[in-house]
Design a protein around this nucleic acid. Structure first.
Length: 636
RNA sequence: GCCGGUGUAGCUCAGCAGGUAGAGCAGUGGAUUCGUAAUCCACAGGUCGGGGGUUCGAGUCCCCCCGCCGGCUCCA
């Protein structure tokens, strides 16, 4: 059978099953050395047979697809090295990932740091040998025989689940692996790689399965790229909110209090206060009503809401008071529902939007806790919107609009958006799910936000939109979530009176924009590397004297700024100026106001920014600048 | 929860093969009055995560527990 290919406007035909490497000469690419081809979106390495026609795109080391191929081959090199060094080791899987690659191994003792070094050394030898990768196709029986001879029980398990009759394997030197590919032509191209860590990982990600040892690494075509990546890791370490949180005295987590419970220190609390003020103002402006609700409620409330059926494993255990069981709240929704129900509602009131910075407690398994990003007690910037079905789309649009507004104020302009659809375990009719999913989709499209579908990942009570924000290092963090809920209105049997004087069931939207103040704060710290914009800075300016004789003037400068409402501190200590500047710099204070002889003389102040620029102002001019910067929420 | 690592002064860390703790920074006191990232001197500060055990003797060895770190599973 002939297969038609096109490349740069020219038409070619090859026999089905022709190895893709023959295309190199056919397309006259031997000079440029492609690593693989893409034929109509299907990635095909040089080892694989051409089976489908279409537009051919050669993949070179610079192509974005090439890294994935490189890393996949790197994982095979890793596996070969491990098998040679540790006979008896069993292979799991070894794919490329976003940032690198890993391979899972089953071995009778844990791998150590030293093992990693030895493995790396062995890998370098394998790379040096430039072993060609060879692809073979086997029948399922042949493959089963091969891998059972090799004692690869996990591979056998995989083979048994492959629907096709033939499977492919890749060989290099004496190493064989069940693999779909694609791979590099030979191991010699895996030049810049590094093993990073070992960690436990359950076979097939299921905690009922045995736990394997996963070795993580990364690989690039060029040494410079590897170096840049490792530097980025270092940079991420420097920005770690747990480290900065301690250094800048923003928050702390104390063993005596318990894991996952946050103390907001004064410097962190002021940042939170600014965020909260902004949040409340924006909500009130947009027709939200502010509410407050308790931290605990009778267990029965959680029965009605369904949380005990669907969410019990995430809730703190009940406590008994006056012979009645109470539980800490993991969510705010039941309370908002009861506020809704506190009197009869009319369609004229709609939409009703209740918002609350509500502190919730969720039991998270000990191993998942992480600084501010994953905690057991946190404050959601929560809101519940009650509306009619015909208002749903409009309300969702407004919520999206508000999210984008909020996030961009903090400097987050890029998002990954996921629309999660109906899961296996759900309440409500299929029809209503479809309607809600449609409304979410329409709102996203109207707002012009690109999104992906996350099938089956919705919460049991309704579909949702999750929004992940990209920080300066290119990492994504989930904060915002917008969920439609058809469960709770039903369970609480809430209603409103329509124009025809008959009761109707409202639809409820459940949404958090920043997600939780704790997590958002953690992300912000890392995003700004602790150097907050002026409006958020715990200390906006420090007035520092050069010598004691400048104190009087400095005190006046301080008083004026403090009276104007700025967060100013005094550093009149008997220390050298350089010392004071260093300290303010380390604390990431945006403005350092220097008062010495010169300033006294001409009644102006010298202002050093934390970026190192020197500016000169009258006090009034500087106050004006600060004010503007705060109002505009300027980021620098 | 699971696998691996780790836990010494507020912070960062040293403490070799078991002989009853050390540095820098921070803190306190003093001297210095010095203009853009660390002035000098002195002092104080630790039940070495907790409990049990081995030993004449344990920060160092063994066991149990707790926290933290890297992952897995889960998630705002």
């Amino acid at each position: 059978m002939e297969i038609k290919l096109s490349f740069e406007g020219k038409e070619f035909a090859v026999k089905a099953g022709t190895p893709a490497r023959e295309l190199v000469d056919l397309l006259e690419l031997s000079e440029k050395k492609p690593l693989a081809f893409k034929i109509d979106e299907e990635l095909l390495d040089l080892h694989s047979p051409v089976r489908h026609g279409g537009e051919v795109k050669p993949i070179f080391p610079e192509s974005p697809e090439a890294l994935e191929i490189l890393r996949h081959t790197a994982s095979h090199v890793l596996a070969q090295a491990v098998k040679e060094l540790f006979p008896g080791v069993k292979l799991g899987i070894g794919p490329a990932t976003e940032e690198g690659f890993y391979y899972d191994f089953d071995y009778d003792r844990p791998f150590t740091e030293e093992d990693l070094k030895a493995i790396e050394k062995k890998m370098k030898e394998i790379v040096k040998k430039r072993y060609p990768l060879v692809r073979e196709e086997l029948s399922r029986e042949e493959a089963e025989r091969l891998f059972s001879e090799l004692g690869e029980r996990y591979k056998l398990e995989l083979i048994r689940e492959i629907p096709e009759e033939t499977v492919s394997i890749y060989k290099q030197d004496r190493f064989v692996d069940l693999c779909r590919g694609p791979h590099l032509p030979h191991t010699g191209l895996v030049k810049a790689f590094k093993l990073l860590s070992v960690a436990g990982a359950y076979w097939r990600g299921d905690e009922r399965n045995p736990q394997l040892q996963r070795i993580y690494g990364t690989a690039f075509f060029r040494k410079e790229d590897l170096k840049a990546y490792l530097e980025r890791l270092e940079e991420a370490k420097r920005r770690d909110h747990r480290k900065l949180g301690r250094e800048l005295e923003l928050f702390s987590i104390e063993e005596e209090i318990g894991p996952g419970l946050i103390l907001w220190l004064p410097k962190g609390a002021i940042v939170r206060k600014e965020i909260e003020d902004f949040w409340r103002d924006e909500h009130l402006k947009r027709g939200y009503q502010l509410v407050y609700t308790p931290h605990i409620a009778l267990r029965d409330l959680w029965k009605i809401s369904g949380h005990l059926d669907f969410y019990a494993e995430n809730m703190f255990a009940p406590m008994e008071i006056d012979e009645r069981a109470y539980q800490l709240k993991p969510m705010n929704c039941p309370f908002h529902i009861l506020i809704y129900q506190s009197r009869k509602r009319s369609y004229r009131e709609f939409p009703i939007r209740y918002c609350e910075l509500g502190t919730v407690y969720r039991y998270e398994r000990s191993g998942v806790l992480h600084g501010l990003l994953r905690v057991r007690g946190f404050t959601q910037d929560d809101a519940h919107i009650f509306c009619r079905e015909d208002q749903l789309e409009e309300e969702l649009y407004k919520v999206l609009d508000l999210v984008v507004h909020f996030l961009s104020v903090f400097g987050f302009k890029e998002y990954q958006i996921y629309l999660s659809t109906r899961p296996d375990k759900y309440v409500g009719s299929e029809e209503i799910w479809e309607k809600a999913e449609g409304a979410l989709r329409a709102a996203l499209e109207k707002k012009g936000l690109p999104y992906e579908i996350d099938p089956g990942e919705g919460v049991f009570y309704g579909p949702k939109i999750d929004l992940k924000i990209r920080d300066v290092l290119g990492r994504f963090w989930q904060c915002s979530t917008i969920q439609v809920d058809f469960n709770i209105p039903e369970r609480f049997d809430i209603s409103y009176i329509g124009p025809d004087n008959r009761p109707y069931r409202p639809i409820m939207i459940h949404r958090a924009l920043l997600g939780s103040l704790e997590r958002f704060f953690g992300v912000l710290i890392e995003h700004y590397a602790g150097a907050f914009p002026v409006w958020l800075s715990p200390v906006q300016a420090v007035v520092m004297t050069v010598a004691d004789r400048h104190q009087e003037f400095a005190e006046m400068v301080y008083a004026k700024l403090a009276e104007a409402g700025f967060r100013v501190e005094r550093d009149f200590r008997n220390e050298k100026l350089g010392f004071k500047i260093r300290e303010a710099q380390v604390k990431k204070v945006p403005y350092m106001i220097i008062v010495g002889d010169k300033e006294l003389e001409n009644s102006r102040i010298t202002v050093r920014t934390r970026k190192g620029e020197n500016l000169e102002f009258t006090i009034e001019e500087f106050a004006e600048r600060l004010k503007e910067e705060i109002i505009q929420k300027i980021i620098w």
